[in-house]
């Protein structure tokens, strides 16, 4: 068979798998509390509070275990607008990916912000968590954050 006539074959392939992740005590504590409608951070030796909590200090690797309760309100510290959500995003309308610093926390948390449109979005805006109707112990138990005035 002649080579020139042979168009290169292609085929779809789906990498689909539901990974099973054991959480360990710190991540597990945060997710358990989320399921129960509470947000929990962890305190670093210098007093700074990180949420979501990590098992260790990101600078030194030192183990952390002092949990701190936080409100579900905070400030957007950075964002981008996703005008056309894709299937993976599980969002039916445009939204923002944002880093959100909860009141009392010293680091940002990556999450979604749902706002009427992009023009509402700005760094420094106050937001409040909108909790998922059914909470199962995942980061998506917070469905998204919304502008505080509209909450």
């Amino acid at each position: 068979m002649s080579e020139s006539s042979a168009e290169i074959l292609t085929a779809p392939y789906r990498l689909k798998y539901s990974y099973k992740r054991t959480t360990g005590p710190v991540i597990g504590r945060f997710l358990t509390d989320l399921r129960d409608g509470k947000i929990t951070g962890v305190r670093r030796p210098d007093g700074a509070v990180m949420v979501p909590p990590r098992e260790y200090d990101p600078e030194t690797g030192e183990a952390l275990s002092e949990f701190v309760s936080l409100p579900d309100t905070g400030v957007v510290t950075g964002w981008t607008w996703v005008a056309e959500p894709r299937q993976l995003h599980a969002m039916s309308t445009p939204f923002a990916f944002a880093t959100i610093q909860l009141d009392g926390a010293h680091t940002g948390m990556l999450h979604r912000v749902v706002a009427p449109d992009e023009s509402v979005m700005r760094s420094g805006m106050r937001v409040r968590a909108r909790w998922a109707a059914e909470r199962v112990g995942m980061i998506t138990d917070i469905e998204c954050f919304v502008p505080e005035e509209s909450a």
């Binding site: 992740r21 054991t22 959480t23 360990g24 005590p25 710190v26 991540i27 098992e55 260790y56 030194t60 690797g61 030192e62 183990a63």
Partner: peptide
């Protein structure tokens, strides 16, 4: 199944034992 640890937790268990054996820290 090490159901009691996360992935970072699993690695840190081995890392801390090695560091402790060596008498040093991160």
């Amino acid at each position: 199944i090490r159901g009691d640890v996360s992935i970072p937790g699993l690695l840190r268990e081995a890392a801390f034992r090695a560091l402790e054996d060596a008498g040093i820290t991160f």
